[in-house]
């Protein structure tokens, strides 16, 4: 298998979408979308509620199929869910009947089970390994979900508003954690978010989705770690925010 060779040579994945469209009945959510994502980059997708961000992410992951067009992983047509990509959802989606550690082990083969504890350490929750998910706080649950995604060493991590339900403080902590792990591991990351400042803080590139098309595609060329009082940061955030607010509802 050629994908096996890719796994060895590069730990991150190049993603390409070609003329991708998706309809739900009469509703066209995505229309002839083209997107090229560099391996190892961090891309944020922003846009109004209902503009199709989650739909796009589901197409990329393989959970859904586009009506027309193709998704490429490393220049190969991607059709079904596979081990290269992992998704983190807005809700943690932990299994309440499995202890935290067993949740992280989900879908791991037996030989790799000891890596789960390592992943928990990574997100600072090794002390909760034997707890039930129901006793964790919202932020802790999302950290477990992050550990569960990371333990598979995905080459592409898809994040669908994973921090949307967290309070401002926990949110900033989680952003720093995600950035740190991304810098260490180097996977390709695509983050869907409502929060423009989150996008500008984390991403190399911010894509604004509107009316089923890419409305804005800007590179964020700021040194990391980024500070929110950097004049260029403020300028960028404002620029994107204005663009979101000015585009009429489609």
């Amino acid at each position: 298998m050629t994908t096996q060779a890719f796994l060895k040579t590069s730990s991150n994945l190049a993603l390409k979408l070609e003329q991708v469209s998706k309809n739900f009945g009469a509703l066209t959510v995505l229309e002839n979308l083209n997107l090229d994502i560099q391996p190892g980059s961090f891309v944020a997708i922003v846009g109004r509620s209902g503009c199709g961000k989650s739909t796009l992410l589901r197409l990329i992951s393989g959970l859904d199929q586009p009506d027309t067009g193709t998704v490429f992983y490393d220049d190969q047509i991607h059709k079904r869910l596979n081990g290269h990509a992992r998704v983190m959802f807005q809700e943690a989606r932990l299994l309440p009947w499995k202890r935290v550690l067993d949740n992280v082990c989900l879908g791991l083969c037996k030989e790799k089970k000891d890596r789960a504890l390592e992943a928990l350490q990574h997100v600072g929750l090794e002390s909760k390994a034997q707890e039930w998910p129901s006793v964790l706080s919202g932020g802790q649950r999302q950290r477990v979900a992050l550990a569960r995604a990371l333990v598979h060493e995905p080459r592409l991590l898809l994040l669908d508003e994973p921090l949307g339900a967290l309070d401002a403080l926990t949110r900033i902590e989680m952003q720093q954690l995600i950035e740190k792990i991304w810098l260490e591991t180097g996977f390709t990351a695509i983050l869907v978010t409502h929060d423009i400042s989150e996008a500008v803080t984390l991403a190399d590139r911010v894509i604004l989705l509107d009316g089923g098309k890419i409305d804005l595609d800007v590179a964020v060329d700021l040194p990391r770690p980024r500070h929110r009082d950097h004049p260029k940061w403020i300028q960028l955030e404002e620029e994107i925010l204005n663009r979101v607010l000015n585009t009429p509802e489609s």
Partner: peptide, 27 residues
């Protein structure tokens, strides 16, 4: 259904989906 979808993303086969998600959820 969100848990089942999550299980699919994490590579569970149909038997694992049943034994680890559907059945414990129905207990």
């Amino acid at each position: 259904p969100q848990l089942i979808e999550m299980g699919r993303v994490y590579g569970l086969n149909p038997w694992q989906l049943f034994s680890q998600i559907i059945f414990p959820g129905a207990l």
